[in-house]
Design a protein around this nucleic acid. Sequence first.
RNA 1: GGAGAGGUGGCAGAGUGGCCGAUUGCGUCACCUUGCUAAGGUGAUGUACCCGUAAGGGUACCGGGGGUUCGAAUCCCCCCCUCUCCGCCA
Length: 429
Amino acid sequence: MLDIKWLRENPDAVRAGAMKKRLPDRAAAVDQALQLDAELRAMLPALDALRSEMKNAGKEMGKMTPEQREAFLGKQKERKVVMQGLEEKEKQLKADIEVQMGLIPNVPDADVPEGRDDSENVEVRRWGSVRDFGFVARPHYDIGEAQGWLDFTRASAMAGSRNYILFGDLALLQDAVLRYAVDMLVARGFTPIDPPLLVRDAAMFGTGFFPGGEEQTYRCEKDGLNLIGTSEVPVTSLHGGELMAEDQLPKKYVARSACFRREAGTYGKDTRGLYRVHQFHKVEQVILDINDKVRSIQHHHDIVKNAEDMLQAFDLPYRVVAVCGGDLGVPQAMKYDIETWMPSRANYGETHSASRFYDYQARRLDLRYRQKEGGKATFCHTLNNTVAASPRILIPLLENHQQQDGTVRLPAALRPYLGGREVIGRPVW
RNA sequence: GGAGAGGUGGCAGAGUGGCCGAUUGCGUCACCUUGCUAAGGUGAUGUACCCGUAAGGGUACCGGGGGUUCGAAUCCCCCCCUCUCCGCCA
């Protein structure tokens, strides 16, 4: 949600922002909202004056004798009829404005590259060198199935396509990665959270996934609850409706949760292996802080670095890209993706996504703090980034660290989580 | 799922139809006082919106939504949440 006052003064910037995101329908909401807002403002003075009149008259009546009161009743009832009409209109306008404002996307920052889709994201930097195997490297699903670590056939049979089952050391490796990610962030001052996986619509709306993301969301209609696609939803919503003290900020959280995505409309895309699945686990970092652009940008760099440090500890080559306008989500002001080298794709594949929102989510969530200077209630800034999402992160781990015989070398950082072993699997080729 | 009790400002907690946007306490801020000093006094202190250059004026909001009434924090209905007891249960 944008500040409507700011929108009134900068409609062109907001429209241009929606167009930069390739969301022409959402750009139209700008004019809708402004027109409704103008209508509402035009009627408010009259309504407020009438209310004031009625209120005063009502107070007078409270002091009257029953006989005097009778004489005034008629007049009051007339006013009431007029007011009910106006109030009906006011309510409708406010509801309509809310809908339109909810549709208007956050304005992409100036450092967001122009572009239509992810093919036009701009590489910012690379780390690590792509390994020259010296043998025919195999994709993770071949390694996994040969080792008895992976079963897609039975998973699909019981749960449908885009499902998987992890066994044995791969199941342990997943847990090792997730635990490493949590431990690393906790060591950096983040508070660990195990959040709800089923949330109300308000949380989905507040974080900006609704409206628009309904098709990607599993919904428990009977209870009106939604399975989260990321713990960003419950964690960013955590302090929604609260008025925090400035010295409670920043709040830094690291959540580990299962995530669920319908992946509607992706049929035929990434069908093989662990890349695109309906259910996965993710360790997510979320920061809530004061309304300060410079600090937001600093946090943004910090949370990207957290993820980079993990990938470096795992000895995985990656690159950081600045996500272009057309690939940016509705609520984001700017986003960096981290893409990790995946030999089976002969390319970098997205493993992390770091977003900054400024106060867009905070406005929707009513997430505020009281400023130390002046004591004003102010909307927070929010940010988030993946630390590790599995099983996708298992793809580069298996593929980049595979050995000719089908065993997999563990990066040193993960060994303590797997009983000190340097290698998992047995020779299969 | 059944029965009961509740949800009021940053927090605690009064308020059962007009004198309530709301007593009081705590907290916070300002000023004052000062060998009772990890103290005392005085005052201020909700959010949003509208009109106004401003000073200022007005409106809405007592969990959310609807209703009764000239008038609702207060009465009625629905929903959400919390607590207690029963049931069920990993």
